[in-house]
Structures are given as C-alpha cells and as structure tokens.
Write a protein that binds this DNA or RNA. Structure first.
Lengths: 120, 120
DNA sequence: ACAACTGTATTATTGTAGTGATACAGTAAT
DNA sequence: ATTACTGTATCACTACAATAATACAGTTGT
C-alpha cells in the first residue's frame, strides 16, 4: 500500500478508501490487526488524530473495530469483507457507466472505450 | 442540466464539471453564451461568488471566457470543446480501470462487470 | 513491575471553502 | 439616457478539516 494521499482533497475519506481497498484485495483478512493510528499517521504524513477519525468512521460501518490499548482489527464477520469488495466494484462501475451515459454514449461505445484503454 | 450539487463536497469542482459535461454533450457549442453567475447561483443554491470562482477556473483552462458586462461564453476555439469531451472520457475511463486493476481484476473480468451493469 | 506500545480525549490554532452583503463598472435593449 | 442586466471586487463572517501538542488509560511482552 502506498499511503501517498492527495493533500488537496479531504484526507479522512482517502484513508478510509485505502483501508477498504486493502480489505477488498484480501491483503487484510477478517480478524487481522491493522496498522496503528500513529503508524499510519507517520507513513501518510498526517496527524494521528486524522487517522483516528478515519478509523472511527469505518468502525461505524462495522468494517473494523478497536480494542483499547491493543489496536485496531478487521471485523471477524466474513460477510463484511466480501461486501466491501462487492460494494466497491458496484459503486465504481455504476458511477463510471452513469458518467458515460450522461455524455450520450451507448452501451457498445462504453464497452469499446473500456477495451481500448485496457490495452495500454 | 440539473444543478443539484452535493453540498457535502467542494462546490467549485462540481460546477466546473457540470459545465464541462454540457460542453462535452454539445449542449453548449463554441461561442455560446452560458448562464450568468447570478443565474447559476440561484439554480444551484449557491453564492454568486462561488460560481464566479468556478468560471474563473475554467477560464484559466481556456474553456470559457468573459466579456465584462456582457456575460460568459464558451471558447470559440473548436478544438477545445472536442478536447473537453475526449479528456473527460479518457480520464474517467482510465481512473475506473485503474481502480479495478488495483483490486486484482483482469481485463476480461472488468469487461464482464461493465456489460453486466450496463443492462440495468 | 516495567517499558513500550496501543487507543482515546482535549484544547487551541491554522487554512480554506463558501456565505452574505454590498458596491462598482461595463453592456445591451428600450 | 435610462433601465436592467452583466462581470468584478471586497470585507467580515461561518463552518469545517486538519494540525500540533499533550495527557490519560488500557494491553502486551519481557
């Protein structure tokens, strides 16, 4: 994982997305310990406070949880990890197709562009 | 055009994108007069100041230009309108594919998802 | 028990996007 | 010329994200 954030965009959502990607890639499996607030803060060049907030947001979604003093862990619930992956793919794909359709592109045209840009 | 902005995200980029989409759709053609700062402000429920800033950003990119007292217009340069469309498609498509590849999806898998979600 | 790590909380401060109000200046139609 | 529209500029204000510094509390390994 790179942890090179775009400092010109809100950081919390970016940190959340990075974590979700790692879970969706199965780099982080259910129950795994994840990097500490301070550790990520150092790598991502942000304040521990910012990472804390990001983690708390993901906790609210049931994706991760904390044990005071021990650390943060990926939810043991197997379904959630799968959902994170499915949701990520679904939302990104739907958003992409919607954007292209707004321009008036047909389904075939969209498929053509995707094929074209995959070979690069 | 809807002008229903997401108030929880930065507004200027959203206004810029809406304009670019209208140009990419050919709803606005080179030389066309576009809605005034105050008009858009009213429709989008934002401050004229915010729209002004957005327009100035697009002006810097050469997409539109202003005539003091008269209004804002789409650049007469034909190439720019075409570029806006091409750039929009290219950047969105590349971003989408990159996101999917990060998850480990193959080209075929990506194409399959796109086809699947187009039929909905 | 101790040291070194964890999460958590608080406070003050900074930077910035957007608001709201107002004013001035140029254009265009009547 | 007047009126009603444009763009442009400024100022004080609000809201919020993120920083920076610090402190406290719980866990873990030695």
């Amino acid at each position: 994982m790179d942890w090179e954030l775009d400092k010109k965009r809100p950081l919390c959502p970016q940190i959340c997305e990075q974590l979700c990607i790692m879970i969706a890639r199965d780099d982080l499996k259910p129950g795994d310990k994840i990097m500490s607030v301070r550790e990520v803060a150092l790598l991502a060049q942000v304040t521990p406070n910012t990472v804390q907030k990001s983690y708390e947001q993901l906790e609210q979604q049931g994706v991760i949880y904390s044990r005071r003093g021990a650390g943060w862990f990926v939810s043991e619930n197997q379904e959630i990890a799968q959902d994170v992956r499915k949701q990520y793919i679904r939302s990104k794909t739907e958003e992409y197709i919607r954007n292209m359709q707004i321009l008036g592109l047909t389904g075939d045209e969209i498929e053509t562009y995707v094929k074209e840009f995959i070979n690069e």
